[in-house]
Every structure is written in C-alpha cells, then in structure tokens.
Design a protein around this nucleic acid. Sequence first.
RNA 1: GGGCGCAUAGCUCAGGUGGUUAGAGCGCUACCCUGACACGGUAGAGGCCCCAGGUUCGACUCCUGGUGCGCCCACCA
Length: 874
Amino acid sequence: MLVKGSFDPAATEAIWRGRWEELHLGEADVDSPRPSFSIALPPPNITGALHMGHALNAVIQDSLSRFHRMLGYEVCWVPGTDHAAIATQNVIERQLAQEGTTKEQLGRQAFNERVDAWYRTYQGRIVEQLRRMGASCDWSRERFTLDDAYVRVIRTAFKELFDQGLIYRGPRIVNWCPRCHSAISDEEVEYREHHDTFYFVRYRSPDGGGGLVIATTRPETIVADVAVAVAPGDPRYAGLVGQSVIEPLTGRAVPVIEDEAVDPDLGTGALKITPGHSPEDFEVGLRHHLPTLTVISLDGIMMVPELPALDGLAVEDARQVAADLLRRSGALEREQPLVHQVGHCDRCGAVIEPLITPQWWVRVAELAGPAIAVVEEDQLTLHPPHFRRQYLEWMRGLRDWCISRQIWLGHRIPVSTCDRGHTFAWIEEPESCPECGSRVLTADPDVLDTWFSSALWPFTTLGWPARTPELQEFYPTSVLVTGFDIIFFWVARMVMMGLRFTGEIPFRDVILHAIILGADGARQSKSKGNVVDPLEMVDRYGADALRGWGATVAMGTQDSKFDESRLDGFAKFANKLWNMVRLLHLIHFPSGEGRIPWGSQPEASEVTIVDRWILSRLAHLVEVVTTAMTEFELGTAIEAIYAFAWRELADWYLELAKPRLQSHDRSALWTTRMALVTMLELLHPIMPFITDALAEQFEEMPPTLDMAQWPVASPAWLDPQAEAVLAEFQQLTGGLRSWLQDLGAGFGRQAPRVPISLTSTADPVLAELIRQCLPLLVPVEWVDSRVDEMDGVAPLVVGGTTVRLASSAASASPQIRTRMERELDQLGQLRARLEAHLSGPFATNAPEAVVQRERDRLAEASRREAALRSSLGI
RNA sequence: GGGCGCAUAGCUCAGGUGGUUAGAGCGCUACCCUGACACGGUAGAGGCCCCAGGUUCGACUCCUGGUGCGCCCACCA
C-alpha cells in the first residue's frame, strides 16, 4: 500500500468514497441514542455547477459533521438543491437568446422541458461535485425544492399564512422589472450610481401667475403628477398651499399640498407627486387620498394617448422628449447634473420601474417580532458577531414582503377565485369553490418568490408538516453555514418561518463565511470567466488539499480572493503525511503489506526526553484543535496540525527517533504511533481521505476515523521540562547548522564530519541529548579536547551551553569570523537596549515575570557576548 | 446619508487578554537527489504591521481622528 513514495489522491479518494458509502456513513439513524447534530445544506441554486464558494461552504459543513461524529453525535446533514426560479429562468432565457429564440416562441411546454433537462444535468453535476469533495451528506434524504413533496409543503405553509391573514393580495407600488416582466422584492433591487440630469420645471398658477418650480429627474412622469408637495410651513410656498398649479405637459391643474416627507433643502423644496411611479410619492398619495395615474406599461412603454409625442416611447427616450417639450415651452428653467442611486434588477440588470400592480404580500410585522427576540436573547447566535446588528436592524425596518412573481418558472401561488368572487388557498388543486360550490374557478397566474420556498428548508427537509421522527430528533438544526450575502434573502426569513411554523428556531448557530472572489478580485461569474471549478482543483491537487484551503479561509470576515497556491501547499502537506506514516510502515514491513501494531507500552525507564517532548507537544495540539473545532475555527485547527505534523513531528521527532525506530526501540515505536495516529484523528474532519487511508495502515483502527473517538490527551503528557530542554537543543542545532553552512561544510552522506567539542552545559539531561542526538542532525563528530588546548576556536553559546567547533579551519574561516563579529555587534545593541530598558521605569512598573524575562535575556546576551569576545581575542 | 468590514513579507492571508526576536502557504537566493518524502532537506533574503495624535513603563495590538479599498442599508425627488 505504501510502497510508493508519493501520495496519489485520485486513487485514494475513489477507494474511500466507496468505503464511506458501503458504511452508510452519512445516513442518520433517527433511533440512535446518541445526541444529535444536524445541518441543512444550503441548497445550491441549480443555475449551474458549483464554484469555489460552494466548495468552501461544503467543506465547513463536512468538517463539522465529521468532527461531531467523532465526538459521538448522530449526525444528520441533509443535502439538496434549489430550483431558483427567476435565476434559472434568466439563465435559460439568455441561452435561448443566443439561439435566436425566446421562451414565448418556444411555448410553455417546450420551455418546461428545457428547464427539466437543465435541472437533470446540473443536479447530477452538483451532487457529483459534492461527493468528489468528500461531503458526507445523508444522500438518502436528498431534496429538491421543486419535487412533489416539497410542492405540497409549500402550499401547506402558504395556506396556513393565508388563512391566518398573514398573506394578502393587493395593488401596491412594487419594484417592477420590465425585462423579467415581474415584480421583485426589495431585497432583489440592487442600487447603482447613475449620472443623470436634474430638471427644474416651472408649474404656473392657473391665473398665469408664477406658481412654483419643482426639481425632478423624471420629467416623463409629469403627465402622471397628481399634486405638488412642499414641506409644512415652508414660507416660500405659504401662499400656494391649497391652491392649484398647472402641470406643464398636458396642462392639468394639480393641488399644492404639505407633507412631512418633503425636504425643503432639496431641489427647490417643491416635489412633484406621482404616486403611480414613485414609491415615496405613493406613500404621500395614500396620506392625502390622492388619485393615481399610470402612464408606463409593464413593458416600460409610455401610455399617454393625450400626448402623442410621448405615447409609445420607451421610458428613457420619453425622458429626452419630455425635457425637449418643456424646454421649448419655456417651462424648463434649469438643468444640472445629478449623481444618485437608481434601482436595478439584481438578476438581469434592467432598471427597476416602480409600478402599481396587484401582488401577493406577506405581512412581516408579526413574523419579525419573534425573529428579533431570539437573536436579542442569544438563543440564536451569528458568527462573526458583527452580523448580529446587521440582522437586527434589517429585521426592525422590515416592510411587507412581495412574494408573487409574474414569471413562468416556480411554484404556483395556490390560490383560486370562483366566479362569485370567493378567493381561497388550497393544497390540492380544487374543482369547486369551498364556499359556494361554484365550479368556475380561476387559478392565480403568479408563481412564488424562490425565497419563500427556501425559507421553509430546514424543517421541510425533515418532514414537516408531519411530526416525523426526523423532525423530533434533528430539529432545530445545530448550525447553519452560509455565505454572508444571503443573510437577508434567506437566513432572516428562515428564522421567521421556522418560528412561525415550528415554534422553534431553525438553528442555534449561524456561520456566515466569506464570499470567494476570483483570482482577479471580482465576484466569480461566468461572463467574467473567473469561475473556478472545484472538480478541476480536486483533479489537480486532491480533495484534501481543496479542503485544507477551505479550512484556512473558512472564518474570514472579508471577501477572499481565491489563491490556488494554498492548495498547492496542502497537496504537499498530504504527501508529507503519507511519507511520515510510510517511514514507520517501512520499519515494520520493509518490503510488503501489513498493519502497524501498537506494541506494548514502554516502561518509564525506556522513555527518552525526546519522546516526552513530542507527547507534550501532542497534548497541546489536542487541546488547541479541540477548542478551535468547537468554536468553528477550522483555520486555527488546521494550521496548528500542520505546524505540529511538519515542523515538530517530522522535522525533529522523526529525525531524532530514526535510529531507535530502526532498532525497534519500544518507546520510540509506541510514541511515534501515538503521535501519528492522534494527529491523523485530529486532522480527519478537515482532510478525511488521506487520514483514513493512512489510519488504515495501523492495527485496531475503526473502518473509518469518523467512527473513531475524538482524541483526548493525557494530562500526564504535559512536560514543561522536556519542552525547555528541546527548545535549547533546537536553538543550538540551528546555530550550528548556520555556522557549518558558512564553513561550506558538506551535508552529504560522504561529507567529512566537522569535529566539535562540548565544553559546558548547565543541564545534564540536555548534555546527554546533545551528545546523543546532535550528530543525527548535523554532520559533526565529538572530540574531547580541552578548551585551553584549542586556541581561538569558535564557540556557540545557547543558554548555559557552549559548543566549540574544534577545528582551526573553523576558527580561521573568514565567514565564521564575520558571522561572529556580526553577532557580537547585534548582541551589543541588544544588551544596550535591555540595560536601558531595565534601568528605566519599566523595572518598577511592569509585572515581575516580564521584568525577569528581560533580565534573563540580558544575562544570556552578556554570556554570549563574553564567549564571542574571548574567542575573537578582543 | 447611515452602518459594517478590511489595510501585516513580492502575492494570498493568519495572528495577538498590550511585553520589545510578528507568522504561514506560494514565490525568491545558496547549498544538498543524505536509506520516508526533491510534492524533499538545510541555511537565508524579504515587514516604519496604512498615516497622525492619545493612553501606557511599553502600542503592530487599546482609544480618537484621518487616508485608501470593499460591502451592506436608505423613499433625498
């Protein structure tokens, strides 16, 4: 198995995906006595394949799932996909446009077939991508927001809200997208900066008097004005309030009114009121019981038969024409450039046209209250915490949610009206009116906002509205992991709906992770060509490497540029792990297969200081990783494991233990195995493939580490003495290596060893370690010369230890001399700084421990300085 | 207009209840194909931790004010 000296991710991953499936690893058992841990996967939109943002999302959830399995939880991670009505429709419409056709030409049925084909393709792709990344979802519970059961659930939820009066239909001003030909919600409006013209237009009095001047960016809507409003008490217009002025395009008289919404400092302080085409004006109109006029069609075309010059024009064109008309009539007094924000459809980019149309609304005031309370009371926690405030402010300022869409794709609004005017919601499509029995029914033509169905996801996937065992066992879910861009679209609404329908929060913790940008720093999008396919990354670096990357960026608070080099680093790490286990494996089985045995536990007398050191480091690691994983800090966890595995276990412990391992030293074998296996267990949630493949090389392991118990370190392993000794040893080794490098000493196998002598140490344990182990790491050999016989030899001083290069060549080496002089210089500066520091107020004000540390450093510096001086003969 | 986040090595990013020697990956330089690994080893170069004040014995870290970048919210026509 480990014959090859390099890790082959593709082969390993295929094997382990198969094993996990055979073990039904992801399948949750509702009857399990274990405590439950559950996650509802944010169902990816089936608008296309997954990108690196989805990969990150899946990695976090899978790591948490596996971690909790190891902690002994029954884990239920429900996967699925979202039909994403308006988004998918747009994608397919764009595709049709490229083919030179439209959905209308195609017809409903052919269009639907097209959509189904699309869904089939991408559903498969998405599931494949998740599997390849190692996602241990419960595939037996996979859901799609358009499947039959889900449809029924949505109707149930809708009917309930409808019957309770929380859903109503009414003509109100909405964000209308003329391109999508549909209303959209406030959240789907994206504001962009526009550089437009501010037109100052005079409305005269009926008697020909001066009247007043209003300022507007939309002169084409003057024909729909029903009033002019000024701020209450504005002295400039005092005489006009209650009078009329003449709208200058068609000459209608409109009243001058007062309203608090008018800011006297803006424009001229007089505001034309156009309730049919402006949300603010609509409100003013309601307050003053003004009529509404509509002059723009659902296609964004002017409808003003009384003014043929404008009639039939697109809004943009009509604006120029209207300005022209006003200019010629002299009513346009002034024009100035204006920078302001204009709403666009976030799906297609078209400019939003506020229009009055009948739509379906959710009364959110009643739903928002509990959703605010659970966050205020910390029943539900957002991570990172600054999102809490964002959530609360949005929730508090919430206006009714427009949930009807006039598009083809999506869940139908389950409402019909009979010919006698009875309107009712249903779950199964009815044949007759439940009130009067009439069989002449008209079904509502609209479909639902995708987010209405998404809002029900966490409990619907567990079987709601039935009181299923799944719901009992796994709801509320434990944690929700999603990108912070959909906190309002989705998270907030799930909280409202969850509380409404189940009486419980839908999840306890919400992890809002970064959005992954393309390497160019822009949002990933197909049109920009900066989308990275996770599968491509898996093919190139392996799934574990991709997951390692995911762990490091998991809790970033910013958008994160995708950095492929991080995957490269983790691919190399995986290879390193492979070889670390291979080292031990080759000792037991030099030429074949076999499982590494535990061997017997060593006697205390067999345990060396190096063994004690690595176990102490291991104990720290268990502590750090456990805490980090519990707090969702995957980045902290993997960095700690990486540093331990490579920088401590491989670089130092294994190098030092090699000869003992080769002679089958009981303590070395046992310690190596303990360190390796524990490290693999800690790493398994994040990098499951390689860790399972390597754990399999050991005896007495479970079929997968998911079934292993999360490691607990023995407190007895903590060993400050061993850590202190090794720290000095490491420093000494590093120093010696530098010197030898300067000397040009060869490190090759046949290179001659440089003679050194140990002239003093404070600590006998350290002395023994140095004698035994230094030559394992550095090409040196011990000679026993007395110091006074070694004229001018170069000393290396670390702590209480001095090692001398016992060679005249060494001391004569100009590089060594230069290095010594440089070091002496640095030490002088350091000493001066420390002395100054310690003689100042620092010594009296700082805590004793800190001061003592500085004193120790000063002593160390002085000692080294003296040794160098004597050696340099100065 | 309000709010939030970020500014640290060439690039992408960690980090710190304030302690004087700030880290990782990738990249770069030199040497080494050393019996687990060249997807490797060793040594190294590279940082006024955005700027200016303040608090403090001590600030990259805390406070205030700037600057720059990004995001969210908002009915200023």
